[in-house]
Design a protein around this nucleic acid. Structure first.
Length: 258
DNA sequence: AACGCGTCCAACCGCTTCAGT
DNA sequence: CACTGAAGCGGTTGGACGCGT
């Protein structure tokens, strides 16, 4: 199992990403998906390693990442899940739609651990004053993400990359990807009732994306599903969407526990 | 104003797991 | 089954920032 040479050895850039690099990555992924992270930076013209690109995308640029501070409910959920799952951050993230494992890990180490251990000074005053900075950061993130959402989706995207872009959140993404890939050829067999539900969805843009492929019955543009991931995954209703989809496409039993 | 300190979080490192052959 | 390459994951780090003195 050969270890990939580190970025420095390869003469690749490390450290914080510039807005230009973000834009290149967003544009490239929206056009071609991210079927092969290792090859992506070369193809996109980025002086980064694939790992760095993947991390940047999954932790920051992905359109379905929820922005802003964790709510009390989310924090409680993390605490509860941590009791049962331990430091399995990706597993916890899978149950908190729109949140990344990295983000949850950070919140745990910075806030929640202290909350649970009163011996640590929570230093709330400092945190509150810092929210101003955080808010501006959030705003910047939102702007980048809005850009990502606006990017046109290429109809010429390969099937394999389409599959790989069904990135909802960590473990769930894995399951979703597998299901779509495995049953890809059966998607067209999904009954018309389901598609009429999809196409009559409140989000008309979403309906457009489902129609965009122009097949009959219409196949979803998987990258469109990715783009609307947060919308679809944020609520119980949207969870129903995914369950509905995969229940009809394939084996429901393999869906993640929520 | 300048400095030191604490906090936060994006990004990296290195190990593990997965998937293909 | 063994091997290999790629992706995923959790731990850690470093720099930016705000606050207190």
């Amino acid at each position: 199992m050969g270890r990939a040479p580190c970025c420095e050895k390869m003469g690749l850039k490390k450290g914080p990403w510039s807005p230009e690099e973000d834009e290149i990555l967003i544009n490239f992924i929206n056009l071609y998906g991210h079927g092969n992270w290792r090859a992506l930076p070369k193809q996109a013209g980025l002086l980064r390693c694939g790992k760095s690109c993947r991390l940047r995308w999954t932790n920051y640029l992905r359109p379905d990442i929820k922005r802003g501070h964790f709510t009390r409910e989310e924090e409680d959920t993390i605490v509860n899940l941590h009791e049962t799952l331990g430091n399995r951050w990706s597993a916890i993230a899978a149950r908190l739609p729109g949140r990344t494992d990295n983000e949850i890990k950070n919140v745990w180490h910075t806030h929640l651990k202290k909350r649970l251990n009163p011996n640590h000074d929570s230093n709330d005053n400092k945190r509150q004053s810092k929210t101003k900075v955080d808010s501006s950061k959030d705003l910047k993130k939102e702007q980048v993400q809005q850009q990502a959402m606006k990017m046109p989706v290429s109809p010429s995207e390969s099937r394999s990359s389409e599959v790989s872009t069904v990135t909802i959140s960590q473990n769930n993404a894995k399951v979703c990807t597998t299901k779509v890939e495995t049953h890809e050829d059966h998607v067209s067999e999904i009954d018309e009732i389901f598609w009429s539900e999809v196409l009559s969805a409140d989000n008309s843009n979403m309906a457009d994306d489902f129609q965009a492929v122009g097949s009959d019955p219409p196949l979803p543009k998987l990258e469109a599903v990715n783009g609307y991931g947060s919308n679809l995954y944020d609520t119980d209703t949207n969870m129903d969407f995914w369950y509905n989809l995969f229940a009809r496409v394939g084996d429901f039993s393999e869906l993640p526990e929520i």
